[in-house]
Every structure is written in structure tokens, then in C-alpha cells.
């Protein structure tokens, strides 16, 4: 029995009732067969992910240190001459630091906004009421709708001439002139962040709601008996229960927003002080057809992101110890 660790494949009960398992070859081959089957079944998945995602990641790093342009692409091999020129060019192209700063602000703003709105949304639909299913479903709409469509709706709504927001703003809120939300420096970045929070709050909402519904009812009941008011119950009972999910959502959303390309590109095209790093990578790749520089810029993006995530994890690990 000591040679076969009872695992999911076959239960110890079966082994007890059947013939005593002989130590030696037979259990080993069973185990090995399971292992082979496992590898065979998982192989296609691994193959696709490694070929289409894993290899390209490594390759980007290689490209970042090579002189590659779109025009000379067919001639360059996998290992050309290595050089630091790309990085140098990327760092010294005007706007390098500004883009990084914008990306960080955009990510922090988008993450915080989406989690806060998602938290409020989860709290208000937590208990059953009439039409709850409909409300819950409509809250997920911004997240499931195609990004191109929702970006255009926002564009049209915020349009200075025919947008509803400026029309209502002037009619009901007393704005003097239409606000070009997406094309002036003072508002563009905040508008993009608001879009991000609007589009991704359903993601936070889903996970927070699932967690909220798993909080045992007795906990809150007990606090209520002890005289805790609703806000106190939230602060001292619910929030601590939600904290791990919020922390996880924080990392996930930060990473995803940091890498985001579509939203900014579609809303502003990177104009008016909203150029984030991924849009810049795209510009290097298509407008300048400079593959090497694009790769170098992408590597910068990934490295900065890794640094942030490492910092965050360290900060949180440190906090939990104390």
C-alpha cells in the first residue's frame, strides 16, 4: 500500500476490498499510465499556449535587442546582431516618461474606480428585491458589450456638437460652452479613466457579489444582536471578509488595465495626453514600422508592470505579517 498514494484515480476502499496490491510493477504501471494519459490530454493545450503565447514572449525580448524594421523583416533571422540601439531610441523618443506616467495614473485610476463602483453595486443588489435578476444582468452589460461599440457610444455622447452630455449640460447644468471631453488635455485622461471604471466595474461586481453571498448570515445576525448599526456591520464584518477578494481584484485589474490597448486607442487614439505605453508600442510598430523599437517599448512595459506587481505583493505580504 505504501507505494500507491491513493489519489483521485482509484480510491483506497477499492484496494481494500480487492486483492491486496502487490508492491512492485503493477501499481507503478497504473500510476504511469495515468501520468501518460494526463500528459497526452493536456498536451494540445500546452502546445497552443506555448506556441502562440510562450514563444512570442521570449521572442519579443530577442527582437528588442535587434535591428529589425518591417521592410527588412524577411531577411532577418532569429538571432541577428544584438544591439542596445532600440532601447536607446525608445528612451530618447520624446514623451517616454510622460507615457509611463500616464499609464500608471490610468491604471491606478481605472482599477480603483472599477473596484469601488463594483463594491457599491454588489452591496445594493445583495439582497433579493423585485427585478433583481434584470438589474444584475444590466449591470454586466458594459463588460460584455464589444469595446468598439461602447467606445463609439461614449464618443458620440460626449461629442461637443451632437452629444447628449453637452446638450444636457448646457441646458440643465448651466455650462457656458460645450466641453470637448476627449480632445482637451485637462479632461481627456479623466474621461478615459471614467470609461475604464464604467466598463470594468461589472468584473469586480461579479466577484464581490459571489463572495458577499458566501458570507454566513449568522455573522451579521450576531453583530446585529450586539447592537452594530448597518455601517458598522459593513466596516467590521463584511469588509474584512471581502478584503482578500478586493486585494486580488486590485492586482488583476491593475495588470489588465496596464496592458490595455483598445480602450484608449479607440476613444482618443492616444491624443490629448492619454497616450499609454501599449498605444505607443502600436505606433512604433505601424506608423514607424520599427519592429525593434516596438519590441523594446513592449519589454519596458512588461518590466515596469512586473516591478509594480512585485512591489504590491511585497507590500501586502508585509502587511499581513504585522
Amino acid at each position: 500500500m505504501t507505494t500507491t498514494a491513493p489519489g483521485p484515480g482509484h480510491s483506497p476502499a477499492r484496494e481494500r476490498t480487492g486483492r491486496p496490491a502487490r508492491p512492485g510493477r503493477r501499481p507503478l504501471t497504473l500510476r504511469r499510465r495515468e501520468s501518460r494519459a494526463g500528459l497526452a490530454l493536456v498536451a494540445p493545450t500546452l502546445l497552443v499556449v506555448l506556441a502562440v503565447v510562450g514563444v512570442p514572449i521570449v521572442w519579443t525580448v530577442l527582437l528588442a535587442f535587434q535591428r529589425v524594421r518591417l521592410a527588412t523583416l524577411r531577411k532577418t533571422g532569429l538571432f541577428g546582431e544584438f544591439t542596445l540601439d532600440n532601447l536607446d531610441r525608445v528612451v530618447h523618443t520624446p514623451g517616454f516618461a510622460g507615457t509611463l506616467g500616464t499609464t500608471v495614473l490610468y491604471s491606478i485610476g481605472g482599477t480603483t474606480g472599477s473596484i469601488l463602483i463594483g463594491l457599491v453595486a454588489a452591496l445594493v443588489v445583495r439582497r433579493p428585491f423585485r427585478g433583481r435578476t434584470l438589474v444584475r444582468a444590466s449591470m454586466l452589460l458594459p463588460y460584455v458589450a464589444p469595446v468598439v461599440a461602447v467606445a463609439f457610444v461614449w464618443q458620440v455622447m460626449l461629442d461637443p456638437q451632437l452629444g447628449i452630455v453637452n446638450d444636457w449640460g448646457q441646458r440643465f447644468l448651466g455650462w457656458d460652452a460645450p466641453v470637448p471631453f476627449l480632445s482637451q488635455d485637462s479632461t481627456a485622461l479623466w474621461t478615459v479613466i471614467a470609461f475604464e471604471a464604467w466598463r470594468y466595474f461589472p468584473f469586480a461586481f461579479l466577484f464581490l457579489l459571489a463572495r458577499l453571498q458566501a458570507v454566513p448570515g449568522e455573522l451579521e445576525e450576531a453583530a446585529r444582536v450586539d447592537g452594530a448599526t448597518p455601517t458598522q456591520r459593513f466596516r467590521h464584518i463584511l469588509l474584512p471578509q471581502l478584503m482578500p477578494v478586493i486585494a486580488l481584484l486590485g492586482v488583476l485589474r491593475f495588470i489588465m488595465t496596464f496592458n490595455k490597448f483598445d480602450d484608449v486607442y479607440l476613444l482618443t487614439g492616444g491624443a490629448a495626453g492619454t497616450e499609454v505605453v501599449s498605444v505607443r508600442v502600436y505606433q512604433f510598430l505601424t506608423a514607424r514600422t520599427d519592429v525593434g523599437a516596438a519590441a523594446a517599448q513592449a519589454v519596458v512595459l512588461a518590466v515596469v508592470l512586473l516591478a509594480f506587481v512585485a512591489l504590491y505583493l511585497r507590500f501586502f505580504a508585509g502587511r499581513e505579517e504585522s
Binding site: P56, I57, T60, L63
Partner: peptide
């Protein structure tokens, strides 16, 4: 893998697919 920027993956894929 999932957390890597898709723009990072996009460049080599662009290169390979072109070739």
C-alpha cells in the same frame, strides 16, 4: 501567460504571420 500584455505577444506573431 494570461497576464502578459497582448501587445507583447502581438509583435512576434505579426512577424511570424507575415513571414
Amino acid at each position: 501567460v494570461y497576464l502578459f500584455p497582448s501587445i507583447v505577444i502581438a509583435i512576434p506573431l505579426f512577424v511570424v504571420f507575415t513571414r
